[in-house]
């Protein structure tokens, strides 16, 4: 087959006239097209089915357990599903999940964006490569390792820091304290911040690198300093990417299980006091108690899982809405 014939079989519509008879016939190219189209469609449908199956599984196990709950599932602060009567509420778990994840974003995203900016626009090439590899390495560390690091190193190491926070910022209610510092929502937040850092940094770095050169030059030609170039061209251009990265990081933080289980005290109080020895999360609770749970207990934990599933879904929808709101200013860029 010479090159011309090969090009015909791709079927781009620009078919060389001298081969018209054979290239108009239904040949390998259209068969390949059909197969590929079906494969692609099949994958899409499969994905949808998996999501529906997970949701159906969660709902079918959760609803009977919630029906047996003699307390208010949404507001009760305690977890005794295998007791008599069974009482359990999602509030402390959901609150802990949201607070630790929010802390992770507050601490992790700015650092990650800073790292990404440094790698993409400030660091010399070799250092950028090294740092990029380090970020990828950080992403590859198993979460149990982060958990152990948090438990064995951070918990004692942060005791003094937590004390200082209380001493100087104790007038802010979230930093009020009993005066004893060990496992807390803040420690969990720090562990999660370290865990989401690589994913947020890696995605942000990619979008920052894609900033078109002409926009950077436009800013420079207006007399922008390096930081002003970041502010007028690079960061706004990467904004949707940063949001996507943040959502991915938030999703990871919401669902993180074992690392959080190790550094949270697993208690059932709804609190915003991030230094207190309080706190729990949905995933941690499931990991810690599923093995010992009775029939209703397991159903109750699955109900908690359903809430986590719904939370993650909601976060994704909100992020999509945020990205879409500014679409006018992006689509036109192409």
């Amino acid at each position: 087959m010479d090159d011309d014939e090969r090009r015909d079989t791709i079927g781009t519509g620009h078919v060389a006239p001298r081969r018209s008879a054979s290239s108009l016939a239904v040949g390998r190219s259209s068969r390949g097209d059909v197969i590929f189209r079906q494969l692609a469609r099949g994958s899409g449908i499969l994905l949808l089915l998996i999501i529906i199956a997970i949701a159906a599984f969660l709902v079918s196990k959760a609803v009977p357990a919630i029906a047996k709950d003699k307390s208010n599932f949404l507001t009760f602060t305690g977890w005794d599903p295998d007791g008599n009567p069974p009482k359990f509420g999602i509030a402390p778990l959901a609150a802990g999940t949201l607070i630790t994840s929010a802390l992770a974003l507050i601490m992790g995203v700015p650092v990650a964006v800073g790292v990404a900016l440094f790698i993409s626009h400030y660091a010399p090439r070799r250092m950028a490569q090294l740092l990029g590899a380090m970020v990828d390495l950080l992403a590859a560390v198993p979460s149990i390792v982060y958990g152990l690091f948090g438990l064995i190193y951070l918990v004692p190491a942060m005791a003094k820091f937590q004390g200082l926070l209380h001493k100087y910022f104790g007038f802010i209610p979230i930093f009020s304290s009993t005066g004893f510092y060990t496992k807390s929502l803040l420690v969990a937040g720090v562990v999660l911040a370290i865990m989401i850092l690589p994913i947020v940094a890696a995605i942000s770095r990619e979008v920052f690198l894609q900033t078109p050169r002409e926009h950077v030059e436009a800013a420079l030609a207006l007399g922008a300093t390096k930081w002003e170039v970041m502010r007028t061209a690079v960061i706004p251009y990467g904004r949707p990417g940063i949001i996507s990265a943040t959502v991915l990081g938030f999703g990871r933080a919401l669902g993180e299980t074992i690392a959080v289980a190790l550094v949270l005290p697993i208690t059932f109080k709804v609190t915003l006091k991030i230094l207190d020895i309080q706190g729990n999360s949905i995933a941690a609770e499931i990991a810690v108690y599923y093995g010992d749970a009775g029939k209703v207990g397991r159903g109750a934990l699955i109900a908690a899982g359903l809430v986590l599933f719904a939370m993650t879904l909601l976060v994704n929808l909100i992020a999509r809405a945020i990205v879409a709101r500014r679409r006018d200013f992006r689509a036109a860029a192409a």
């Binding site: 078109p212 926009h215 436009a218 200013f329 992006r330 860029a333």
Partner: peptide
Amino acid sequence: FQKPNPFPTM
């Protein structure tokens, strides 16, 4: 510049 380059986000 050669290619019009308004800031797309503005």
